[in-house]
């Protein structure tokens, strides 16, 4: 099966392995991630103001590209996913916004037809966690893993519609499928400090520490995340637990972590 894939800027630079592990794991699970051509940066954050149009065009172009191929659009990075999904929702539900955007679109207008999936949703809904479980060659048995969602994957819940925003389980289910033990901690859906680390490093440090400390207190040995910025903030601010991308864990369990070509 083939799906359109939007890697995003960070996955081409500082988070190369998030991307690489995602592709290898998908291949191992029988899904091909087709990188869409000429994609541009999603913009990093979705501007909620109704009069912001230009900053959302690159996302719409990616969405339209997938629509023309009739494929769902898959992202791995939490930020890209959040921006693209919110943009798509606005195209679907706000006709005024959609008509403004479509003035910039060549030929056919786009009105939110594409299904936007996070890689985790692809695993859960298309591949199925049971199928993932069957493909596991290196069970992660014995590991206690805390899934850190952050804010971007789940909120706003009405738009993201991935999981229960206060009591999510998609990553915990994945961890279980890989043979490890999920550790639920309350701050898994709290913000790491995000881009405010530029403005107030102290605030970001406090927020990251709240998350990392809470995960440690809950008894985890490692934290997984889907977001390069979350990982950066947690590590930079002294997380005592290792913070890894969920795709790395997946690749490890599926036995595709070490690439023979490397």
């Amino acid at each position: 099966m083939k799906v359109s894939y939007f890697p995003g800027c960070t996955l081409k630079n500082k988070a190369v392995m998030l991307d690489e592990y995602a592709r290898r794991s998908a291949e191992a699970l029988g899904v091909t991630l087709e990188e869409i051509e000429n994609w541009q940066c999603c913009g990093g954050v979705f501007t909620t103001s109704k009069d912001e149009v230009a900053t959302k065009l690159s996302s719409v172009r990616a969405l339209k590209d997938a629509a023309l191929k009739g494929q769902p659009l898959v992202t791995v990075c939490s930020a890209c996913h959040n921006v693209i999904k919110q943009t798509n929702y606005a195209m679907l539900t706000d006709p005024e916004f959609a008509s403004k955007v479509n003035r910039y679109m060549a030929e056919e207008p786009y009105n939110g037809e594409t299904q936007v999936l996070h890689y985790l949703e692809l695993l859960r809904d298309t591949v199925g966690f049971d199928a993932v479980k069957e493909k596991v060659v290196n069970s992660l048995k014995g590991k206690k893993i805390a899934a850190y969602y952050g804010c971007l994957l789940l909120r706003p819940a009405g738009v993201m519609q991935m999981d229960d925003p206060e009591n999510p389980r998609i990553m915990e289910d994945l961890i279980r499928a890989l043979g490890a033990e999920p550790v639920v901690f309350a701050n898994r859906n709290e913000c790491c400090g995000g881009y405010v680390t530029v403005e107030s490093p102290a605030l970001a440090a406090r927020k990251s520490a709240d998350v990392a400390d809470n995960a440690k207190a809950a008894g985890a040995d490692m934290i997984i995340t889907a977001c390069p910025l979350c990982r950066y903030n947690l590590i930079k601010n002294g997380s005592e637990l290792p913070v890894v991308y969920f795709t790395e864990l997946l690749a490890e369990a599926l036995g595709v972590k070490e690439d023979t070509n490397e």
């Binding site: 500082k14 990093g44 501007t47 930020a79 995000g194 403005e199 910025l229």
Partner: peptide, 16 residues
């Protein structure tokens, strides 16, 4: 710093 993800700069500029 060496690890700053691109995402951080893009987001910060868009916000600020």
């Amino acid at each position: 710093d060496d690890d700053t993800p691109q995402q951080l700069l893009v987001s910060a500029f868009r916000k600020y």
